[in-house]
Design a protein around this nucleic acid. Structure first.
Length: 783
DNA sequence: ATCATGAGCATTTTT
DNA sequence: TGCTCATGAT
């Protein structure tokens, strides 16, 4: 262990680290060295005789957990750090529940449902109840159930809680409570827990089994919680229970960065800490090591508009740095173009690498314009978030097999795979099975196992029996083989891998690669040495693998972690990260703040905290951009600039960039604030336009893509003797015919030789289109 | 039973 | 706009 680890801390940080026993709250401003303090404190505890096995550290994301583990290891050296219990709430509780679930009547190999799985179960139930899923939208019902669980409210209480019932009545969904009840029962029957159950059931477990509570209280003598401002009531109560015996609870958080109330987090938890633990020590970390003065001052001034903050004064020794640049563009696409160009320019001017840049937005849907423009300028990038690897169809299908193997009572997965690949067990048969299962009070799997008793047609019966036999053969491997061996066998015996391999379309190829990647990740899982303490069962089993992956997000799928790429992500996903140069984009009313969050002070303040978070991600340079108009659901809409822009102190803002940026208040003060008066006229003109009218386009770009005349694409009749030509023989400039789009000219060719992509202009077929030649066939008309 | 087509809907944010 | 789901044709 490094001897001088305390010397590397400032006074406040040292104070926090040195506090060993009793409750401690660390109010850690943005960039104040929070992770350093947490990790050093763990090391310090161990140095002072605390056994690593007795330390529990809970984080919010897997990434944070991993980072913490690594940093503690670095401080300590050796392997002791491996005995620490560090993980997210969800993953740690999943692991504990895996050891204890039988007490609650769940199989220890219970399945974890992600939100898609959960909604799918709900949808089934809603339809079974003959309710209209347009009105009882699975999404909405799921959110209600989720909120209930996060405040530890079970189906019984839910249905008897007057206020809750009133809300459901008002929303005209009085049966929500009933659905909650049925959903909970169905999950139980399936041996499955959703994300919220991992917290809820953990609480129930500790509350109902004093001996279990005692066991873990004794085990986790020291508890640390990161991002405490984002905990919800369920997490709060669990911590309270676990920590009650020793009260060695250390929470770290920043009320100014609480941005997860939509998920049930309550800022009250952090504001209340001192009341909950009267002898709590409070340490404030107020020195920021990350950002320039300009950036930090802007952030401070913005967040001062929120009420009820924990008082703190974040300051920095860093230099003033450049002013924050405010940029207005006409359209979302120009916003993308501006950002891409600025990145290219900054790379040259200030010798930045791609990895130094982050583009941060409010919603995932905003990423497209940046992707396109970065690609155009050949700047490598990576998008974090969005559709997760594990949400892809082929992955879910494959994982469904693995789930059925470990937990055959789980119906969602069973339904998913029973006829994939096609084996003649279609809808009719499934309906019949559902009825049988219901009538005889059996699970689907039990019906399948006893199919012979129920008079299926002989062909169907044979298909079912083969299926059952196959699954059983996998199950027979469970005790003797690790996750990879079983998964490999599944891929082989079911024919999935072969089927995807034989699919030579682009999508088929991608799917095949994804499955290979999944198999690789399973292999990697089985080959990574075990690093955990006593509680672990069979760490390399298929069951424990499945337990993990549902809790992984795209961002956790490491690998090219430090590759040199520009990073694109939502502001939420960027919390806890820092970048030399940040582009905070889409700063418009209705987008940021979101139109859904401007109806109450609380919601608006959360949006403002989000703005605070994005500003404080930046180390040295910060661009704030917004567009006058952008496409939303295919509609061009005009937006005013974000109200938050008006809350920033003028002296740190540079409005001259890119032809000047405008803020609403500038409109009132007339002209002259902008470096470029042409921009102002343009802006005025835009504002005066009646909504819905076509907007003039600025710049050299052509008018927005003309919508093709209705049916233009479908009226083309292929010439007699239409025969596709070999893609390899095609070149730009040729005239070609497409069966649907008609005649056109190839403008450009790109892509690998075996996967060429042509940009073709079809005058009568909807204009420019990108055509993947491997499957859209073209005939050469003229070379 | 599978595919193609079109209607309708969606956007907050994520473990 | 682009995706998902339901529907209907083959």
């Amino acid at each position: 262990m490094k001897a001088n680890y305390l010397d590397e801390l400032n006074e406040r940080q040292r104070e926090a680290v040195a506090h060993i026993n009793g409750p401690l709250m660390i109010v850690a401003g943005a960039g104040s060295g929070k992770t350093k303090v947490l990790t050093t404190r763990i090391a310090h505890l161990m140095r002072n005789g605390v056994d690593a096995f007795n330390i529990l550290s809970l984080t919010f994301t897997n990434k944070a957990a991993r980072e913490m583990k690594e940093r503690v290891e670095k401080i300590l050296g050796g392997t002791e750090a491996r005995n620490l219990y560090i993980g997210t709430f969800h993953s740690v509780f999943a692991r504990l529940l895996r050891a204890e679930a039988h007490r609650l009547g769940y199989p220890n190999d219970f399945t974890i449902y992600d939100s898609d799985d959960a909604k799918s179960v709900l949808k089934t139930i809603i339809n079974e109840q003959n309710l209209d899923d347009k009105h009882y939208k699975p999404n909405l019902v799921y959110n209600r159930i989720s909120a209930a669980k996060n405040s530890l409210m079970g189906p019984e209480e839910y249905q008897h809680d007057y206020a809750v019932q009133q809300e459901d009545m008002r929303a005209n969904r009085p049966l929500t409570g009933k659905l909650y009840d049925m959903y909970a029962k169905r999950c139980f029957k399936n041996g499955a827990m959703d994300f919220d159950d991992l917290l809820f059931k953990m609480y129930v477990l500790l509350k109902s089994f004093p001996e279990v509570l005692h066991k873990y209280q004794h085990k986790f003598k020291y508890i640390m919680i990161d991002e405490y401002q984002d905990t919800n009531p369920a997490q709060y109560e669990i911590i309270k229970l676990l920590g009650a015996a020793h009260e060695n609870i250390c929470v770290v958080g920043d009320d100014a960065q609480s941005i997860y109330s939509f998920r049930g987090a309550t800022i009250q938890n952090i504001l209340q800490f001192e009341k909950d633990y009267e002898d709590a020590k409070v340490v404030k970390l107020e020195q920021n090591y990350r950002s320039t003065k300009s950036i930090l001052n802007v952030a401070n001034e913005v967040i001062a508009n929120n009420k009820g903050q924990i008082e703190k004064n974040l300051w920095t020794d860093n230099g003033d740095g450049e002013k924050i640049k405010l940029v207005r563009t006409m359209t979302d696409n120009e916003e993308g173009k501006f950002v891409a160009e600025t990145i290219a320019e900054q790379k040259l001017r200030n010798h930045y690498s791609n990895r130094d840049f982050a583009i941060l937005y409010r919603t995932n849907a905003q990423s497209r314009a940046f992707e396109e423009n970065l690609r155009r300028k050949a700047i490598p990038y990576r998008i974090f978030g969005g559709m997760s690897f594990y949400q892809r169809k082929e992955i879910k299908d494959f994982v469904a097999y693995l789930r059925v193997v470990t937990n055959p009572q789980e119906e969602e997965s069973l339904k998913r795979i029973i006829n994939y690949p096609v084996r003649g067990i279609g809808k009719t048969t499934m309906d019949k099975i559902a009825v049988l299962a219901n009538d005889h009070n059996l699970t689907f799997w039990q019906v399948l196992e006893r199919a012979a008793e129920f008079g299926f047609k002989s062909g169907t019966l044979e298909a079912i029996e083969n299926f059952v036999m196959m699954i059983r053969s996998f199950q027979a491997m469970l005790g003797k083989h690790d996750a990879y061996e079983i998964a490999f066998q599944v891929g082989k015996s079911t024919g999935i891998v072969k089927e995807l391999f034989n699919d030579k379309t682009t999508e088929g190829l991608a799917r095949y690669e994804n499955i290979q990647e999944l198999l690789n990740s399973i292999k990697e899982f089985t080959e990574t040495p075990t690093e955990d303490g006593e509680l672990v069962l069979q760490e390399k089993s298929l069951g424990s693998y499945l337990q993990q992956i549902t809790l992984l997000t795209d961002a956790d799928k490491g690998g090219d972690e430090d590759s040199d790429v520009v990073k694109l992500m939502t502001i939420h996903a960027a919390k806890g990260l820092e970048f030399p140069v940040v582009f905070s984009v889409g700063l418009e009313e209705n987008l940021f703040p979101s139109s859904l969050s401007i109806n109450s002070r609380e919601e608006l303040e959360e949006e403002r905290r989000l703005f605070y978070v994005v500003i404080t991600r930046a180390k040295s340079r910060l661009w704030l951009t917004y567009a006058n108009s952008r496409y939303r659901f295919g509609q061009l809409v005009n937006n005013e600039s974000s109200r938050f822009l008006e809350e920033m102190p003028e002296k740190y803002i540079d409005r001259s960039y890119a032809g000047g940026g405008a803020v609403r208040s500038s409109l009132n003060t007339g002209n002259g604030l902008w470096g470029n008066s042409g921009g102002s006229n343009m802006f005025d003109r835009m504002q005066k336009k009646a909504p819905g009218q076509p907007q003039p386009q600025a710049g050299p770009r052509p008018m927005p893509k003309q919508a093709p005349a209705p049916n233009a694409a479908s009226t083309h009749v292929p010439s007699a003797g239409f025969a596709p030509d070999d893609p390899a023989t095609m070149e730009a400039g040729m005239e070609v015919e497409h069966q649907k789009f008609g005649f056109g000219t190839i403008l450009n060719m790109e892509g690998a030789p075996n996967n060429r992509i042509a940009t073709v202009n079809f005058p009568k077929g909807g204009g420019e289109k990108k055509i993947m030649l491997n499957y859209a066939r073209l005939m050469i008309v003229k070379k």
